[in-house]
């Protein structure tokens, strides 16, 4: 299972990288969103065994819990990546409003030559 999840994360990373390298700002943002999915899956698979226990809630009648640490990390990460996505989306939107383009090669700040 871990290997499978890792490979899935790897595929997502590839897709995300390709999107990030593209010219359009929207694709880049979509790429970062996908990248965070991949990261979450990766962290998840790094715990001590997937599905290797019960939910991490201590109650009678349930066996030993799964590794809770990656879950805590991911919970933080989910919210942060939401904030990042929101911020970059708004940046893209305002950039488009001001400059009329979302093409990164047209958005270079410095004038060359």
């Amino acid at each position: 299972m871990e290997t499978l999840i890792t490979i899935l994360a790897g595929v997502l990373v590839t897709v995300a990288t390709y999107l990030i390298l593209s010219k359009s700002l929207i694709r880049v943002i979509l790429g970062t969103a996908i990248l965070s999915h991949a990261a979450h899956l990766l962290i998840m698979s790094m715990g001590s065994g997937l599905k290797n226990g019960s939910v991490p809630i201590l109650d009678e009648g349930i066996g030993p819990p799964v590794d809770a640490l990656p879950q805590a990390l991911i919970l933080t990460s989910i919210v942060i990546s939401f904030a990042v996505t929101a911020l970059s989306l708004v940046l893209a939107y305002r950039t488009y409003q001001e400059t009329g383009t979302d093409k990164l090669d047209e958005l270079r700040g410095i004038k060359h030559e």
Binding site: V79, A83, A86, L89, V90, Y93
Partner: peptide
């Protein structure tokens, strides 16, 4: 914070 920020973001956009 979560409520405030999420609503602020959606509203401002």
């Amino acid at each position: 914070v979560v409520v405030g920020v999420v609503v602020t973001i959606i509203l401002s956009i």
